[in-house]
Design a protein around this nucleic acid. Sequence first.
DNA 1: CAACGGACCTGCCTGC
DNA 2: TGCAGGCAGGTCCGTT
Length: 271
Amino acid sequence: MPELPEVETTRRGIAPHLTGQPVVRVIIRQRRLRWPISDELEQVLSGQTIHAVERRAKYLLLRTDRGSVLLHLGMSGSLRILPCATPLRKHDHVDLELGSGYCLRFNDPRRFGCLLWTTDPPERHPLLCDLGPEPLESEFTATHLYTLARGRRVSVKPYLMDSHVVAGVGNIYANEALFMAGIHPARAAGRISLARYGTLADAVREVLTQAINEGGTTLRDFVGGTGEPGYFRQYLRVYERNRLPCRTCGEPIQLRPLGQRATYYCPRCQH
DNA sequence: CAACGGACCTGCCTGC
DNA sequence: TGCAGGCAGGTCCGTT
C-alpha cells in the first residue's frame, strides 16, 4: 500500500487523536514484523504522552518526552483510530490504547512494517540518518538530482526510487512522475540534463501533492487513519494501465520490469 | 563504489 | 474445486 502520500494521509488522520494523549496500555499480539518489536516497548511506552506525530520519508514518528516510536507500514500496513473494544480483524498486530478510550491499531498482513523505539533523536537513527531530502521540501531540487546522478548508469526510475537520492518516492509515483516529465524510465540517470531534472522534480512535487489532496492511492486495501480509502487511483496516468491507451497520445501503455519493479510508460510520450 | 538478487510475509488472481 | 505459480504499494543486506 503505502507510499509517501498514503503515509502522510495516515499521519493527518491519526495525529489529532494522538497528540497530547497518554498511552495507557500497549497490546502486542505479533512481535515478528520486519524486525521484532523489542521486549521493553510495552514498559517504556506505557504512561508516556505523545506530543507530536511527524513523518520522515515513509516513517511515522510518534514523539514522547522519553523517546520516539518509529513506525513503517511496509507494503501492506495500515493504522486506524478505533474504540478500544472494536473487535479484532486478522493481522491486527498492535494496539496503543489512549487516555481517550480510543486506540491506535496497527494491521499488517505481510508484516513488512516495523515498530521501533528509539531514545535518540529519530533523525539520527540508522534507518533515517542517510535518507535523501523530503521531496516536498526545498532541498529537493533539479541541481540535487543532477549532481547526485553524475557518473550513474542506473536507470532513472530506480534512481528516483533510491531513498538516498530522495526519500519516499515509491513505485506508483515514480512511474507517474516520469510520465508527467516525459522521461523514459530506462534512461540512464547520468544522461539527463539539469533542465529535464527540473521538470522531473516539478512532476514529483505535483504528483505527490495531488495524491495527498486525494487521500492517497488505494489499490486494494489502503485506508487512512479515519478508515477512508484514497481516491487518487482514478487519476493514475500510467500505473496499472498496461495496454490501455495513453491519456495524452492514445498509444498503448507498455509494461516491463526495471530493477525488479513493474514499470509503466508511454513509448511515444517518454524519451 | 555501484548494481543486482535475495530476503522478509500473506493474499489474491490466473491458469491448468 | 483445488493447487501451483506469479505478482503486489518497501527496503535492507549480502554478494558480485
